[in-house]
Amino acid sequence: MEKTGMEQGGTLPLGKVKALVLTGLFAALGCVATMVLVVPSPTGGYMNLGDAVVLLGTYLLGPVCGAVAGGIGPALADLLAGYTAYVPATLVIKALMGLAAGLLYRVLRRRRWALAVCGAAAESIMVVGYWLYDGLLMGSLAGSAVGIFSNLVQAAFGLAASTLLALALKSSRYVRREFPNL
């Protein structure tokens, strides 16, 4: 019976260690990006730079690691910033954003417009997800609709920033070699 890396001495294969470290790094970057620029929204939440990191992390790391990092980082930011009511929603919504963008990007990545389409699909999950969650918190979907505009602004910025950053990184042979998902 062949032994795995964990059974041989408690270590992970280098590829798994790299994936774990990069996932943690992008979770930390997502947390920081979410907390750096905070613009309060009408529903009690806030607009931030985190979506750009969620999407970029997904394009670089792939759908699963991107979803994990994308959910944990911004959820941790909500916890640290005192928005505890939003932690579970952020964890799920941002993870779904990353998963959707990553899976769609696997299918479309050879097309020039893939980043924009994948980002738009992911951001629509964010806008609808927070609208529904705010509706749950407020007891009114009509009342929570007031937050849609600020979420659309955040979505547009996250989409534009992640697309521009991904295109710039994609032009680097080194980045393409180190991050084959891009």
Rank of each mutant, 00 (worst) to 15 (best):
P42C: 00
R112S: 12
L165M: 15
L169H: 00
G9A: 08
M1W: 10
F179M: 02
A85I: 07
M6G: 00
K16G: 08
K16D: 14
A77I: 12
V128G: 05
L96D: 10
T4I: 09
Y46C: 04
M126I: 02
L164T: 04
S171R: 15
L108Y: 04
E7N: 08
P40L: 09
T23W: 08
A122F: 09
L49K: 03
E178D: 03
T58S: 01
R106P: 11
R109S: 02
W113E: 09
L115A: 08
G135A: 05
A33P: 03
G98M: 13
L182V: 02
A69M: 03
G147A: 13
S171I: 00
K16V: 08
Y86M: 15
L60N: 05
L80K: 11
P40S: 12
T11R: 15
G98Y: 07
L37F: 14
G45Y: 06
N181P: 00
G139A: 09
A155S: 15
G45V: 00
I125V: 13
A52M: 09
L164N: 02
L80I: 15
V32T: 03
M138W: 09
F149H: 01
P42Q: 01
G10K: 06
A160W: 03
A85H: 07
L169D: 00
D134W: 05
Q8H: 05
A85L: 13
G70A: 03
G10W: 12
T11G: 12
D134I: 03
P40N: 10
R112Q: 10
A52N: 10
M35F: 07
G57V: 03
V53Q: 01
Y133M: 02
L79P: 00
L164R: 01
T58K: 02
C65D: 04
T84P: 04
L169Q: 01
L49N: 10
G10V: 08
Y133S: 04
V54C: 14
K3R: 14
A160C: 10
P180C: 02
R111V: 01
